[in-house]
């Protein structure tokens, strides 16, 4: 049995597809590829497929991951070829390799958050407390998310800013970058935002592989 880690880009058309739909698209690609994907045991067997922390609708990423297993073993480049042919064109695979660390060890991610607005004001806001209203299944509360922002560089670009932010992205401590945008547009004039996930890191800020 061989463990497989697929790195792919979620851009363009794919950013309008929900995580659930993307998950299903990959399952169907498995079936089309005729790769010997390993299934779960039990009453209703299905391929064992795990994604890295999913992104919200409209967000883009240069570095998404899904893991699965094949049995018998086949070379990674063959897996990449077969899977690429079976996936929708918009889903671009950048690398297929053996997993180095567990997906749960992803701790941070670097995001480029672009927004039309005043650079100085944005930088100023990001220095202070950022209290947002967060609702989950179990509770709804006001929380300060500034401690989930490991670093944030504000760079002036044409007509707006790019925030290069490293945010908590572990399964237990995940900050959706949309909260930062919502906070900004509530407090200053800011519009036309875009979110791009650029890199993922482990707890030592080493690029996740």
């Amino acid at each position: 049995m061989l463990s497989v880690r697929v790195f792919f880009k979620k851009q363009g058309a794919l950013s309008y597809i929900s995580h659930l739909d993307l998950n299903r698209a990959v399952l169907r690609a498995f079936a089309r590829s005729e790769l010997p994907v390993v299934y779960s045991e039990g009453f209703n067997p299905h391929p064992r497929l795990t994604f890295s922390q999913p992104m919200s609708l409209f967000q883009e990423s240069l570095t998404e991951i899904f893991d699965f297993k094949v049995d018998p073993d086949i070379p990674y480049d063959e897996i990449q070829n077969k899977l690429s042919a079976a996936l929708p064109k918009a889903l671009e695979i950048t690398k297929v390799a053996a997993p180095v660390k567990k997906l749960t060890e992803i701790t941070y991610a670097l995001y480029y958050i672009t927004i039309m607005g005043d650079t100085a004001k944005v930088a100023d806001i990001l220095k202070g407390e950022i209290v947002v209203f967060r609702s989950t299944k179990s509770k709804s509360e006001y929380v300060d998310i500034s401690n989930q922002i490991k670093s944030a560089d504000v760079i002036n670009i044409d007509g707006g800013v790019r925030i290069e932010a490293v945010l908590s992205t572990s399964p237990t401590d995940y900050l959706n970058p949309q909260y930062i945008i919502d906070y900004l547009s509530k407090n200053i004039e800011a519009f036309d935002s875009k979110i791009l996930r650029v890199k993922m890191y482990d707890s030592d800020m080493k690029e996740f592989e």
């Binding site: 363009g12 058309a13 309008y16 597809i17 739909d21 698209a25 609708l57 409209f58 929708p88 918009a90």
Partner: peptide
Amino acid sequence: EKILNNVDKPGRYIGGEF
């Protein structure tokens, strides 16, 4: 692309399916 951000289920309008 901008108005796609303002609608429910934008996947309805983009094509690009397998």
